[in-house]
Design a protein around this nucleic acid. Structure first.
Lengths: 270, 270
DNA sequence: CGTAGTGTTGAATTGAATCAAGTGTCGTGG
DNA sequence: CCACGACACTTGATTCAATTCAACACTACG
């Protein structure tokens, strides 16, 4: 909290450069800036290749996947990957940055249905109806790998382990969504918030970022829409968790001070 | 509501026999009872084959699917298909009856995560972690087709259209779960209930049952757990919708009297 | 430097939960 | 076939968590 604000990419770059968990107090100093949006990287050299689609493929197979992946220009904050009811064409793997998906109902109000971090797959909701069910936009400067779905299907036909892995990715999405169902149907505002923070924490850990200290790329409003709460409630819960000493919040920068106690909020249930 | 209670299977059998929408006033009369739990039927002769996994397969391919499907003994009300953290082995297609999936949290309280009607697929939440994330039990006397997943994968490798269809089924589940997310995070009790009833209606229509009159195989408590409401609230909303003339409820038997107005509850939003 | 967007905090309100007390229904065993 | 007990459902009164309404502070950006 003594820190000036830094973007996730900067934090990420720093971490890669320094292999340390502690965020330097004067980050703007002389950190060598690695650009994580570099679009010329191949799947085999991508540092996410052990988390992303290539996870199940051997060296030679990866090149086949590589050949169908399109590495698009970087996305600016607010840019849309696709919009609700656009024709479904591709799924996307987040390379850097973050995205949110949201659903606009007939009555015009939107709700956030998901946040996506590096190594995660976006767009699977469009597979069955051939139209995307959500809109998805970048929360910060971000980059993406586009994987045309028809080609992914074709390649899955040739590479059993790719098929297996993609089934697993989709199954994981289903299991995750059902957990969220439980969360929304029975947890209190504090429990939802704690669960959200712990979820982000482990997802950051997965991409080798600090699990206890990170930047929220989404607004309080986004979080509220995702958790089924209002902005005000999210803000109040953050404040109250801070007063209890479980977290430390400073604007978008957040630190989980007592992960164990945060977990207990979820398990001490009714 | 002047009707004595009848099970869904009976309603189904009657409909098949009579091709009519109106439930006879004296059902116990002389309806020729077709047993929908007959386990000797093959995929190609199953009357659900245009809704279920075979949908995308031609005659000759169906026999290959047929060969890996295991048609289990019927399930009695309350019998479990599998339990949370059992080893994942198969996905299941509902042949007749209905099932509920529910998740037990550490604190012991369970929440219903889904209901499954004939032609729908159960168990995909276990694919990625190799353990089922839910327990699933029969809500009434029901029958099931078990599809060992490893064999389904193998066969998907040979039959591109099966792979395609299974991707679509999973994508559909994801899209559906995200709609539920929106429902739970922003709808009122009345909106959730209306949406639930309309959802059941169209799913019954899909299996050629009356979309406006059906039996609820789940308790008010199950509905409440699914929608994130209490039993009392569900009961009150049913009563209030009945007073408004939109539905008619008599115990587990329900009739949607004004589907258009029910839809309007959802769209008139904020 | 000003302004729009984002976040915080307080007070009042409310929708649904909880608590409580029933009635209705079904399956079982006598 | 009926009586019993367990479970399912309904309805009312009260409480409470989260929303709503309102005012203000902070930040970021042109």
């Amino acid at each position: 909290m003594a820190n000036p604000v830094a973007t996730n990419e900067e934090l990420e770059a720093r971490r890669l450069a320094a292999q340390e968990d502690i965020i330097p107090t004067r980050p703007s100093a002389t950190v060598h800036k690695i650009c994580p949006h570099n679009s010329s990287v191949s799947c085999s050299s991508c540092r996410l290749n052990e988390l992303c689609l290539p996870i199940a493929l051997n060296k030679s197979d990866i090149h086949q996947l590589d050949a169908i992946v399109e590495r698009n220009r970087p996305f600016k904050k607010g840019d849309h990957l696709y919009r609700q009811s656009d024709e479904f064409k591709s799924v996307y793997a987040v390379r850097s940055g973050s995205f949110k998906s949201y659903f606009l109902s007939d009555s015009g109000q939107g709700r956030v249905t998901g946040f996506y971090l590096p190594g995660e797959i976006i767009g699977m909701d469009g597979i069955s109806s051939k139209k995307y069910a959500n809109s998805t936009s970048a929360l910060e400067h971000s980059s993406i790998c586009e994987i045309p779905f028809s080609q992914l299907e074709k390649l899955s036909q040739e590479l059993p382990s790719l098929q297996h892995h993609f089934f697993a990715i989709m199954g994981n999405e289903i299991a995750k969504d059902q957990q969220v169902h439980t969360l929304l149907s029975s947890y209190t505002a504090e429990e939802r918030t704690a669960s959200f923070l712990l979820g982000l924490s482990s997802r950051y850990a997965r991409v080798s970022l600090s699990p206890s200290r990170f930047l929220l790329s989404m607004t309080r409003g986004d979080i509220g829409e995702y958790l089924g709460l209002t902005v005000e409630t999210v803000s109040r819960i953050f404040t109250s968790l801070q007063k209890k000493g479980l977290i430390s919040v400073n604007n978008r920068e957040i630190e989980l001070l007592d992960i164990e106690s945060l977990r207990q909020i979820l398990t001490k249930g009714t």
